[in-house]
Amino acid sequence: MKTRLPVLVAFISGALMIIAFFGRGSMVDAASETALTWQSIVGGFALLLGAVSIVRVHWQKISTRHEDRFYSACLLVCFVVMGGSGVVFGIGGGTLFDGLFQRIQAPMMSTMFSVLAFFIASAAYRAFRARSVSSAILLVAAMVVMLGRIPMGQYIYHGLPAWADWIMTVPSMAVQRGILIGAALGAASMSLRIILGVERTYLGRG
């Protein structure tokens, strides 16, 4: 029962969505919309689970005097302040929550995003080694694209931007399409396995 019920729910939901995709009419639309609404409601309740998990994990660290307890305390304080301000004063423009989000969280998110530039540099330095013929081709292509995409590239050789464009739109695009088609078929095959109950590993079985 513990496995059969989820498999049955997956089958009914999957079949409903397939019918909604190929069918039309108020009954089909209403059924699929109801299913999507249920999904949103379940997602909303699940958010509570997430909040409970955060508090539980970090409270445990504080109470067991874990070496990271100060980070945990900081997290819980921020959690209460941010959540509390939203609940008490609302989350619209100009509220305390909005101010905290715009002035503290948003710049921190931008900082994390900008760290990517540093990580791309170190990853490229390490990864682009001409160890074989194929990696040498990859290395040359990467350098042409990098130079072709910046203003300096055209001073080195005026044809570089065109070469870079060709690499991006022909070989790179061909490979991406191949990966995409394979992935789409893989996703469809996995969906079919789930709907038919053949695939149960996501339930911890198999």
Binding site: A117, F128, R129, A130, L139, M143, M146, L147, M152
Partner: peptide, 21 residues
């Protein structure tokens, strides 16, 4: 800035490969 960074990364790659060879 992006131009300089691209140029710098290319220099890193060339140096790394020089060391490798």
């Amino acid at each position: 800035a992006q131009s300089l960074i691209h140029f710098l990364i290319i220099s890193f790659i060339i140096l790394g490969n020089a060391g490798h060879f």
